[in-house]
Design a protein around this nucleic acid. Structure first.
Lengths: 135, 135
DNA sequence: TATTACGTTAACGTCAACGTCAATTATTCT
DNA sequence: AGAATAATTGACGTTGACGTTAACGTAATA
């Protein structure tokens, strides 16, 4: 583990990867496509708290079935950066689109949870039937 | 559109695909991997209401970022089929695993919605600032 | 009857998101 | 200093989920 002159909150690649259970390959890949941009101490990558946050957001996105491009879009929402009126408006539109997608997902999840409940009930039903027959 | 002697609720591949906005390739692929099994009239596939339901479930799964394998597992929950005690118990376990995943997703979505709300607020803030400066 | 329109199988192609070497270069530990 | 550990950059491989093209059969229609 490349020792880092830990100015409070800097992470080596292996630190970060262990924490989030991803491989270095993944972290480097995210850097390749511009989702992370750690600084360097010589050749070696040094991840900041901000990088850590971004990775957290990316992984949350993955759990939700978002593509990395979706996550990129969402992450960009956190840093309005140099934004003129036009950019801000399209950003707001993007936000609302994402919001709509999420509400669809919420519906889907609710329905699926209902289905699972029913399936479980049926299982228990079958189990008690079996125990009745074999007793 | 291959005419089907529509015994009430049978669908041609193009009917089904139009309804769900997928390509025939997709339907055939799902059949290849055993997610659908339409009957045949000669060579031609004939989809039943059950097939239609299964496809709906698959697509809902996709929206939630489930893999086709996850969806297969979930769909199997609807047909306990020839089930002994052991099978039923492992089914119940699978149900609970999926349930846990879904609750994780619910949390993720809630957080993301919160984030979006904040981002939107910031956008509006920036916009009113701009209009103040240019007035 | 000939032209569409729709259906089929088979096989290769593609794209995202990494996995898996290999060869090389720091860093850390003893 | 020397061994062990960790990091780096290529570059090719893999997997899931289809897209695409070819080559062909069948069925409705003008």
């Amino acid at each position: 583990m490349t020792k880092i002159v830990t100015h409070s909150s800097e992470y080596s690649i292996s630190d970060l990867c262990k924490e989030f259970e991803v491989t270095p390959r993944t972290a480097r890949y995210y850097e390749d496509i511009g989702l992370l941009s750690p600084s360097r101490r010589g050749q070696t990558r040094v991840y900041s708290a901000a990088d850590r946050t971004r990775l957290r957001l990316i992984l949350r996105g993955k759990r939700l079935g978002l593509s990395l491009e979706d996550s990129r879009q969402i992450i960009d929402m956190y840093e309005p950066g140099k934004s003129n009126t036009e950019q801000l408006n399209s950003l707001i539109e993007a936000i609302n689109q994402q919001r709509e997608k999420l509400h669809q997902k919420l519906d889907d999840i609710k329905n699926l949870l209902e289905d699972l409940k029913k399936a479980e009930t049926d299982c228990f039903q079958s189990l008690t039937n079996i125990s009745r027959n074999t007793s």
